[in-house]
Amino acid sequence: MRAMKKPALMKKIILYVTMSFLAVIFLFPLVWMVMSSLKGDVQIFRDMTSIKAFLPPMPNEVDGYFQNYIMAFERVNLLRYIMNSLIYTIGIIIFGLIVNSMAGYALARFQFPLRNFWLAVIIATLIIPPESIFLPLYVLVFNLGWVNTYTGLIVPFIANAFAIFLFRQFFLDFPRELEEAAKIDGCSQIGIFFRIIVPLSKPVFATVAIVLFINHWNDFLWPLVVANDDSMRTIQIGLQYFMNQPPIQWGQVMAALTVATVPMLLIFIFLQRYYVQGLAHTGSKN
C-alpha cells in the first residue's frame, strides 16, 4: 500500500495542474470582463494587448473601483429589467420542467401509435432555424392579444424540443425494475413518475433548468419585439442600451455584462448540488 502512495500523489498533482491550466484557459474572458468593469475606457483598450487585461486596475489608475457600476445603475433601471427577466425565465423553467419531462418520459417508456413519428417531429423542430418562424409566431401571439404580457413571453417557449429529447435519453437509461416494483405496489403511472422517477432524476432536471435559464436569460429579439413596453423590458434589452450610446462606454458595458452574467453563474453553482444525488447512488444501495 505504501508503495502505491507516491505515484498516486504524483498523479494527483498532475491532475490538479492540468485542471488549473484548463481553468485558466476557460476562465479568462470572465476575468477580463470583470476586471474591465473596474477600469476606465482608455485603460481597457490600453491593457487589451497584455496580461494586464486580466488584472485589476491599480488604485492610482481609477477614481473608484465601482464607478462603472454606479453609473450603469444610474443610467438604466437594471434591477427592474433583471426582475422581468427572472419572472419570465423562471416561469418557463417551472412549466418547462413539468411538461417536457412528462413528454420525454412518454417517449422513453410507453408504446403508442406514432411514437417514432412524434420523436422525429420534435427533433425537426429542434433543427428549424428559429429565424424562419419568427414572423408567423409573432402574428399568432399578436392575434392572441399577448403582446406586452408575460404570457406572450412564457407560453410559446414552455415546450422545448431540446429538453424533451434530453429527458427521453435519460429516462431510457432508467432501470425498469424500480417502476415494475412500484407498479406491483399499486402505484399509478402518474404516481410512479412524480414519486419515483422525478426524485431520482435530479441531475437531468438540474441540467434542463440550466439550459432553459441560459437560453431565455440571453433572449433578445423576442422580448424586444413582443414586450416593447418599458415596464416589460428584460436584462438583454437593458444591456443593449449600453451598446447603443455612442461613444460606447466600455467600462459600463462590462459592468452591465457582469451584472447580467452573475445570476447565471449563481444558478449553475447552486444547481451543482443536484449533480451528486442521482440514481447511481440510490441504485447501488438497492
Binding site: E131, S132, I133, L135, P136, V139, F220, L221, Q240
Partner: peptide, 24 residues
Amino acid sequence: PLTLSVAIMAACGGEESGGETSGS
C-alpha cells in the same frame, strides 16, 4: 464585432421568414 446586439438577437431567433395568411 463591437455590437453585442446582433448576436444576442440571433441567439434567440430573429425575424424573417414568417408572415401571415390573409385572414389575420
